[in-house]
């Protein structure tokens, strides 16, 4: 598997990253080196092996259904470039 410049630009766009044509061209090479390495790993037969989700076997931690957080709208929007009456303000996005 390898990527071309169109794929690199598409992934950048999906991630909302501004990538110049020049950078994109460079990334095609970098990404293909990474993908080549992954392809090498593909040589190992892992059929029937479950993906490892944790280094040591453990159960997922769970919480009780209790309200323990919230009521800090001012903190939540503190770093926002723009806010009003507790709302975040963002450039208009409407379908």
């Amino acid at each position: 598997m390898s990527v071309d410049i169109a794929t690199v630009k598409r992934v950048a766009r999906l991630s909302r990253l501004a990538v110049s044509d020049e950078d994109a061209q460079r990334m095609v090479g970098e990404l293909n080196v990474i993908l080549g390495f992954v392809e090498q790993l593909d040589e190992v037969d892992v059929s029937g092996v479950e993906p490892m989700t944790s280094v040591i076997a453990m159960d997922m931690k769970k919480r009780a259904d209790v309200v323990t957080d919230g009521d800090k709208a001012a903190d939540i929007v503190a770093n926002a470039p723009a806010s009003e009456e507790g709302f975040f303000l963002v450039p208009k996005v409407v379908e």
């Binding site: 939540i76 723009a82 009003e84 507790g86 709302f87 975040f88 303000l89 963002v90 450039p91 208009k92 996005v93 409407v94």
Partner: peptide, 10 residues
Amino acid sequence: QHPTMSYVDL
């Protein structure tokens, strides 16, 4: 709510 901005409530 605003001419050029959208309000976001999480």
